[in-house]
Nucleic acid binder design. Sequence first.
DNA 1: ATTCTTGCAAATCATTTGCACTTTA
DNA 2: TAAAGTGCAAATGATTTGCAAGAAT
Lengths: 136, 136
Amino acid sequence: MKNATTMLMENGIKPSYQRIRILEYLMSHRTHPTVAEVYNGLIDEIPTLSKTTVYNTLKLLIEHQIVNEILIEEKEVLYDVAEEDHGHFKCVSCGDLIDFNLNEAPPAVPTGFVVQSVHVYYKGLCNKCSGKQHKE
Amino acid sequence: MKNATTMLMENGIKPSYQRIRILEYLMSHRTHPTVAEVYNGLIDEIPTLSKTTVYNTLKLLIEHQIVNEILIEEKEVLYDVAEEDHGHFKCVSCGDLIDFNLNEAPPAVPTGFVVQSVHVYYKGLCNKCSGKQHKE
DNA sequence: ATTCTTGCAAATCATTTGCACTTTA
DNA sequence: TAAAGTGCAAATGATTTGCAAGAAT
């Protein structure tokens, strides 16, 4: 995988110091961190960092499809570097969030996992909007 | 589909007036309403209804798997009466949320729809917790 | 110098909590 | 009259917004 600076530039995003560090954090922490975790993970090395910048940067990365948001926690959004298709398994007992492969049919969860509910959602353009191709 | 009172009783939930009306609202409004929409849809006929009761009741219905929560909006949770498996398609342009059938492989979105991203999540027990079978 | 980026503080808003009141068996 | 259910008001906490200061070209 390319380095953070290259990924930003290839997507037309000016690679500021904060943006590089936030994307690097996501690339090296594949634990679906929250905004707070990204912030806390960087604040020691970047004492001037603000949460607003973390929010702004994540929104920017999502708009450019470099990062996906995972809406599985009721209370806060998790973030994930966009890569191969994978699903997420959330344990309702311990709260762990585990990736699983989506390139098999049916998508296979690891051995020993008990699926209680399946949730699928797509995002894109509906039939009314796909003709216009314009957003907002 | 059974009526609301029957569904509640079959699941061991005491069918209070508020619970019946809230479940009836969900059964007759298959538009993935928010808490606020459920509340606003009932407040005229049940002037004493409180949002806390709507929250409490929805949580209870979810615990008994009568209702599913849809985590697709960033800001608020949507609710759906539990039925046949179906996925949700959110249009990033107009914001519409459309159901689609999951019982085909691959899951087919309606004609004219453009899928930009696929999100799948399962909930259940991970391998560490499935042996214990205990929650919380 | 103008535009982009950052960051603080305040505002917003969905959801939760504490507790008191009401209903039901 | 206990126990369960309801509801008000306040608290919580993630996210957004307005705006001023800083950095870059």
